[in-house]
Simulated assay, not measured.
Amino acid sequence: MRACAGAFVERATARHRLPLDYSPASLRLVDFLADGLRKGGADRARAHDTLVGLGAYVGEVLVRRAGAVWVDLDEPQRGWFGQPVGVRMPDGRVWNPLGKVVNRFETGAPEESLRTFYLTLHGRSRRVAA
């Protein structure tokens, strides 16, 4: 997923000067991009690759800034989250950044904000990784 996030950032920043620097503040931009896809009329199937890239980016922010690690989800977790991968936080909790991005895209609801997700996330490490 790290490579997926990197490829997404490379594609997104090649044409536009987007501040995708893996900081928690950059998650506001992820909210904006997901909202723009929805408002632009993209359906989930057409937006799939972009949503996966955004989800990988959000997960990578958690890895780099909150002490998470990417994990392959087991069968019950896959059923619950609807995704094959997630992140495990230092306290052992597993989260689904890809699904969270899809929720933001589908609803646009303020409570589905990716920045708020990061700021209120249980199990974060206090350390900041480069």
Score class of each variant (00 low, 15 high):
residue 69 V to R: 12
residue 31 D to I: 09
residue 18 L to E: 08
residue 88 R to M: 13
residue 100 K to F: 09
residue 11 R to Q: 11
residue 40 G to V: 07
residue 67 G to P: 04
residue 120 T to N: 05
residue 110 P to V: 01
residue 12 A to N: 02
residue 7 A to W: 08
residue 127 R to Y: 13
residue 87 V to C: 15
residue 76 P to L: 03
residue 86 G to E: 15
residue 97 P to Q: 11
residue 108 G to M: 13
residue 42 A to K: 08
residue 17 R to W: 13
residue 59 G to L: 10
residue 124 R to A: 00
residue 59 G to P: 15
residue 13 T to F: 11
residue 63 V to K: 03
residue 111 E to L: 11
residue 42 A to G: 00
residue 99 G to D: 07
residue 48 H to S: 13
residue 34 A to Q: 04
residue 82 G to H: 12
residue 25 A to H: 07
residue 102 V to W: 10
residue 77 Q to N: 04
residue 22 Y to T: 01
residue 85 V to Y: 13
residue 55 G to D: 04
residue 125 S to Y: 05
residue 91 D to Y: 11
residue 28 R to H: 04
residue 117 F to G: 05
residue 11 R to E: 04
residue 95 W to F: 12
residue 9 V to Y: 10
residue 26 S to M: 15
residue 86 G to N: 08
residue 83 Q to A: 13
residue 88 R to A: 14
residue 83 Q to K: 12
residue 4 C to D: 02
residue 9 V to D: 12
residue 17 R to L: 09
residue 95 W to H: 14
residue 112 E to P: 02
residue 30 V to G: 00
residue 81 F to S: 01
residue 22 Y to V: 00
residue 31 D to R: 07
residue 114 L to V: 00
residue 65 R to G: 02
residue 53 G to D: 13
residue 117 F to A: 06
residue 108 G to Y: 10
residue 109 A to M: 10
residue 77 Q to K: 12
residue 90 P to C: 06
residue 57 Y to Q: 05
residue 119 L to A: 04
residue 70 W to S: 01
residue 97 P to G: 10
residue 21 D to V: 08
residue 86 G to P: 14
residue 28 R to D: 02
residue 99 G to E: 06
residue 54 L to V: 15
residue 66 A to R: 04
residue 76 P to C: 05
residue 16 H to R: 09
residue 100 K to P: 01
residue 30 V to W: 08
residue 42 A to E: 08
residue 69 V to D: 04
residue 4 C to M: 10
residue 63 V to T: 01
residue 20 L to Q: 03
residue 113 S to V: 05
residue 60 E to K: 12
residue 83 Q to E: 14
residue 59 G to F: 11
residue 38 R to E: 00
residue 13 T to C: 14
residue 29 L to V: 07
residue 124 R to T: 00
residue 27 L to Y: 06
residue 51 L to S: 04
residue 11 R to S: 11
residue 123 G to Q: 05
residue 112 E to C: 03
residue 65 R to F: 09
residue 118 Y to W: 15
